[in-house]
Design a protein around this nucleic acid. Sequence first.
DNA 1: CACTCAATGTAATCATCGATTACATTCGAA
DNA 2: TTCGAATGTAATCGATGATTACATTGAGTG
Lengths: 245, 245
Amino acid sequence: MTTRPRSSRSSKAKVAAKKAGPRKKGRAGYHHGNLREVLIEATLALVEEGGPEAVTVREAARRAGVSPGAPFRHFPTRTSLMTAVAEEATHRLHDAVFAAVASSEADDPLAALRAMGRAYLRWAYANPTHFAVVSDRRLIDYDSSQSIVRENREMQALMVRLVIEARKRGLAADIDPAVARLASRALVYGLARMRVDGHLPQWGVQDARSTEAAEAVIDLFIDGLMRAGRPAASAPPRRRPRSGP
Amino acid sequence: MTTRPRSSRSSKAKVAAKKAGPRKKGRAGYHHGNLREVLIEATLALVEEGGPEAVTVREAARRAGVSPGAPFRHFPTRTSLMTAVAEEATHRLHDAVFAAVASSEADDPLAALRAMGRAYLRWAYANPTHFAVVSDRRLIDYDSSQSIVRENREMQALMVRLVIEARKRGLAADIDPAVARLASRALVYGLARMRVDGHLPQWGVQDARSTEAAEAVIDLFIDGLMRAGRPAASAPPRRRPRSGP
DNA sequence: CACTCAATGTAATCATCGATTACATTCGAA
DNA sequence: TTCGAATGTAATCGATGATTACATTGAGTG
């Protein structure tokens, strides 16, 4: 009631509702019909524009053409709104990764691992804002979302499977699989997060080229794993508890 | 004037000022003397307790025992306060990294690189909250701080120097130095960020052990660089990363 | 020693935000 | 048609970041 004219509801709202109306249950009549989805979209747009910090429940409501209190019915808290966005984003990432692995060269675990890393990175670089939301668990209520937990587990299980498979084939044989897993994950995550956190530009590897550079890093890493597996005249040596300097 | 009794000024404030008075310039008399530093400390404590998101200018002022508007003289904006904290944190990280490299085995670039990575990680794991502040450039006004920019440049220059040096020695000879640099950085950054973002616990590598696991990853990576430089399949087994269950 | 003034903190204020409640409207099923 | 559940509105609360006018201090100047 401050400055904003309160009457746009019956105009904009209805239009949006009609347009996107795959009719959730009944019809998309008055009550905006699908506020929930529109709010998620608006939030995504906000993240896109100013990062996760810029997300405001009120602004999302404003863009949806509803009152500031309206989102409360669907998302009782800002975190729950962000969680819903993360749910959507996780789903897309999950699908992208699995699709890439599925269409990778069959029977080649390391190729699949490479495809997985590339897909993850490409998605993160193409959707840095979505990635920012899914990667920072401070922003969301991670454990409350069945689907986020499940899909993340599936992605990790896939990676574990690929690493184990690679070992069976003798590749990366003398490398601790747990370490290999952590390394793979950290490398890809680091590349993605550096971009989101703004550490890449100053590095001289910019936008378009950063994907290229990042994929080169993945290749380097996978090549390293391959090299490590070759029976290079060195017997599998006993491990040593590392001695700290 | 809501619920909090406004009159604690002349009691708490003065006490705090007296207590912490290493006298910045003159004496630590009335004007709190060193509000600026106390505010930075309070902010660090807040980050420690609830992450960067939990930082509130008012709460910092409250802890310093001054009025909500007092910080304005020193930090006109929340971001400027966070930037000051990041300055302090960057300085500590910078020193830790350089000290580690300085005391590493001389004339061994890869050993130095390893020491650098370890020091970075150890610092990040020991001070996750400080790291969260310095790593997310959304939180601070990066370019406005001479010292942050300079010390970051110095750290990167050091890394570049080490990689170049390693190449001169024939190690990692067939690897693009730019890629190696990016990979090194991404790996360490990823490990640190995963911890901060809460991705490590669920992975089965917990607190105390996560440092160990992360350092094993660094070892694996450095070993890979070494292997890459050697003529194909004759890698003398340097050290083995620990293999866990 | 007294005065003045820049530095520094206080008080008060504004707009915005997240959260929450009481109330109103609409839809849809009995 | 009626009535209840869903859903949005309005109003409110406490807290926040920011900013201003004002007060106080203490250090330097004469």
